[in-house]
Write a protein that binds this DNA or RNA. Structure first.
Lengths: 242, 242
DNA sequence: GATTTTTATATGTCTGACAATTGATTTTGA
DNA sequence: TCAAAATCAATTGTCAGACATATAAAAATC
């Protein structure tokens, strides 16, 4: 998969890569205990600080966890969905903010991926998911809600839509796409009228999923996509005028 | 987004979180130079090894890069797509292998997301993308190809399909979904007949995209999904018999 | 003026030490 | 004997100080 042939970079990077490869290859199974830092420094012929730097690199990716004490050490971590979510969201957010991705491009990707969920979500969504959507819609229609809170509720609504597909892999993949948009959305000032329209479209989506009508949900999502892009465009145009 | 209120964990983890937050918040812009390790250890009132562990954590997430020498130091890294791909693929792969995700669930997510690309890909795919798909199909029909090489070519084919949408955000999101499946796919032994059928479906997809017919591509993908799942089921059944 | 040498500054690595945590072991007391 | 308390041992977390190495800028040299 990768060029593990050419050792590159610092010693700590090489050691981290070596251990990472062992984990991915399955040579180190979940909850297996790595040798102690002292033993690792002997094995790799480096000092303990260098070993520690390598272990911290792995810890940052949630590949290992460490425990102090007599029976402590570094253990191969069971990578759970929340850990993966966090990483994905951080990476996606920075990727969008650093690569001059247009709001149109990001929206296109996000809504296309969300539409990939509608068929499954229409089929499998539980009453819980529908209730979450309605609750978030209610929150969104409260007057006096800050733009940030409105966006956060919007994210929650769409996550409920995605989670309705009852496919954790899909939820994981979509987490980044949905959440990473939030900083971009926060730049938009939502007028009372635009909020009203968005909530109405959310209503159409929720109704369609409740009726298990994926096509209607698709249409509403498409309309929401176009409306979001047009709102963003207005903001950018207004900003250009100043 | 996160609970940055409660400082948790080791000092190096706290310091890493603090710097990470500053990067995400935009207080540290791309290519900005962080204070030297000596200065950071003064600011945070910790020793240099501790600062270094924190910096290695950030380097592992490709948030910073370091440079030695007189004008060296730690710089906020411009997170590029390939960096993000690598992280996504590593995380997705481990997530699948550690969470007993069924092949059916993973396939469902992957193909649903791929179908999200077909409309755009049918519209925008370049001759290059089509050529890549044809070339991979040719490789896949060569006799004597190992199962691993067949799977790798399969990944390349599907990446061309995704890249055809000409949306880098989508390509990034899908990279994990497609590549993370490869280890699972490698467990399948592809007979000559099953390869033939897969290549035939690939042909349908390529033809549909060339004709800019998204619906046909969708159908072929759906059939490919069902066929992949049935192949995987056969392997598992055969394994259960022994 | 171009080239070489020096220098300053930064990260990379090492050694050795001590602090803190924690499960296991031993001791103590009823 | 058994339970509680004290001790121990192993391990990670942190620190101080040093030297090695890389690198760009400055100085010296031709």
């Amino acid at each position: 998969m990768k060029n593990s042939s050419t050792p590159q970079g610092d010693l700590s990077a090489q050691i981290a890569a070596s251990i990472r490869d062992a984990i991915i290859a399955g040579d180190l199974i979940v909850d297996a205990r790595l040798p102690s830092e002292a033993e690792l420094s002997e094995q790799f012929k480096v000092s303990r600080p260098t070993v520690r730097e390598a272990l911290k690199r792995l810890a940052a990716q949630a590949l290992i966890r460490t425990q102090r004490g007599a029976t402590g050490g570094a253990f191969v971590n069971h990578l759970k969905y929340p850990d993966a979510y966090d990483q994905q969201i951080t990476t996606s957010t920075l990727l969008l903010s650093m690569n001059e991705v247009s709001i149109a491009t990001a929206c296109e990707a996000r809504f296309a991926l969300e539409r990939a969920c509608t068929r499954l979500s229409a089929e499998r969504r539980s009453p819980d998911h529908l209730a979450t959507m309605r609750a978030e819609m209610f929150r969104q229609s409260q007057p006096g809600l800050s733009d940030e809170a409105f966006c956060a509720s919007d994210v929650a609504f769409h996550r409920a839509l995605v989670d309705g597909a009852q496919n954790p892999v899909m939820s994981y993949q979509l987490a980044g796409a949905v959440e990473a948009m939030q900083p971009l959305m926060n730049m938009i000032t939502f007028t009372a009228r635009s909020r009203e329209k968005i909530v109405a479209l959310h209503g159409q989506i929720a109704d369609a999923l409740e009726a298990q009508n994926a096509a209607n949900a698709d249409d509403a999502l498409t309309e929401l996509e176009a409306y979001t892009i047009s709102l963003a465009k207005d903001v950018l145009d207004a900003r250009a005028h100043r």
